[in-house]
């Protein structure tokens, strides 16, 4: 099983042309009371690309802003969340700076067809009162075109890709196990062969054995239909197995971004280094150290580099200036004053 996952993982090289370009995105939770505006800067100046035919991983702890980031990208911007600055450009949505800025008709056209979403709780997607067959019709039929029979045929064939047989179509969600339900939602999200899929912790609620199967399926479907996937989880082990490139998020900003293999072989940001070094491994008895302090509050983040109060390499400049995200090695970007100097020198 492990071998299968790994061979699948070393498949085609992602082309460089981006499907999604995010530039200096700022999304804040803004509250106004008695004329006083308060911002919780959940996403504060994030820039990255997701390329065609790649799985782009996003890792971060709770309250690092990763959920806000993907919600903003998916166009789910509702007060108090506001996009304060920056742009989000999809190559299938020309002329608008993000789904939140596009007219509803355009968004309607794009959802499921070009952009789909795999969520953590499969029960939040599947209507408990509708059979799986009806859920597929509700979501996907109008995007697929063709006759009802042809659509049913397509659904049936597509379910085989996630190793489900046609009998699940007649089932209600509660009759299926958690792993089967999550496979149904993966089938739903991929049946229209969208250009871009957002996966938000899709395996976190699953048991370890099921998780491995589901990850393998996401990988094989992605390779088959050539979609780009933005895969979000806090579990570094999952990223190591699945993603092509990986970005580490800390307190509303990106700390580091590189090809996954590169980041594990050569982490540069002190936070990334800590995350990887603190993972316990079977067969390794060396004591693991915890990071001092706790993740900062986004309502009142530290000045300069947001990691500086917990950073072993902190210098004076870190308290004053925000470190820019710099490409210090080919395809390897880091936001750290200490690293910027040492690698360039």
């Amino acid at each position: 099983m492990a071998a299968e996952l790994r061979t699948a993982a070393s498949a085609p090289v992602a082309a460089r042309d981006p499907v999604l370009r995010v530039r200096d995105l700022q999304a804040h939770f803004r509250s106004r009371y008695f004329g006083v505006t308060r911002d919780v800067k959940a996403v504060d100046g994030i820039t990255f690309d997701v390329r065609r035919n790649e799985i782009y991983g996003l890792a971060g702890e709770s309250s690092s802003g990763k959920t806000t980031l993907i919600k903003t990208i998916a166009g789910l911007v509702k007060p108090p969340l506001e996009v304060v600055g920056g742009t989000i450009q999809f190559d299938f949505l020309k002329g608008y700076d993000g789904l939140h800025a596009a007219p509803p008709a355009e968004v309607e056209r794009i959802r499921w067809k070009n952009l789909s979403y795999i969520m953590q709780g499969s029960m939040n997607v599947l209507n408990p009162l509708r059979r799986i067959r009806d859920t597929f019709r509700d979501f996907a039929a109008r995007h697929m075109g063709g006759s009802g029979a042809a659509f049913d045929r397509a659904v049936f064939d597509h379910l085989a890709r996630v190793k489900l047989d046609g009998s699940v179509l007649e089932a209600y969600p509660h009759e299926l196990s958690g792993g089967m339900r999550q496979r149904v939602t993966i089938a739903l999200a991929t049946i229209c062969r969208p250009d871009f899929i957002i996966a938000d912790e899709p395996t976190t609620a699953l048991d370890v054995l099921v998780q491995k199967d589901v990850l393998g399926m996401i990988r094989s479907i992605q390779r088959e239909i050539g979609s780009s996937v933005l895969f979000v989880t806090h579990d570094i082990g999952v990223h190591a197995h699945l993603t092509d490139r990986l970005a580490i998020m800390y307190a509303g900003r990106l700390a580091e971004e590189a090809p996954t293999r590169e980041i594990f072989a050569r982490p540069l940001h002190p936070y990334t280094k800590h995350l990887i070094a603190s993972l316990p491994r079977i067969g390794d008895d060396t004591p693991r150290q915890a990071l001092e302090g706790s993740p900062p509050s986004l309502a009142d983040p530290p000045s300069g580099c947001r990691f500086h109060p917990r950073c072993p390499l902190a210098m004076d400049i870190c308290k004053e200036r925000v470190p820019p995200m710099v490409e210090v090695l080919p395809d390897h970007r880091v936001a750290c004053h200490a690293v910027e100097g040492s690698v360039a020198a």
Binding site: M1, A2, R6, A9, S10, P12, V13, A14, E54, V208, L209, Q211, K212, D235, I236, G237, V238, H239, A240, H241, T243, D244, P259, T260, R261, E262, I263, F264, A265, I276, L279, R281, I282
Partner: peptide
Amino acid sequence: LRDAVLLPDVAGTAHGPVSA
């Protein structure tokens, strides 16, 4: 169960586009 543990070390050996 043991085989389902996703070890981070795998990434350093045979993974990803860099290894192509």
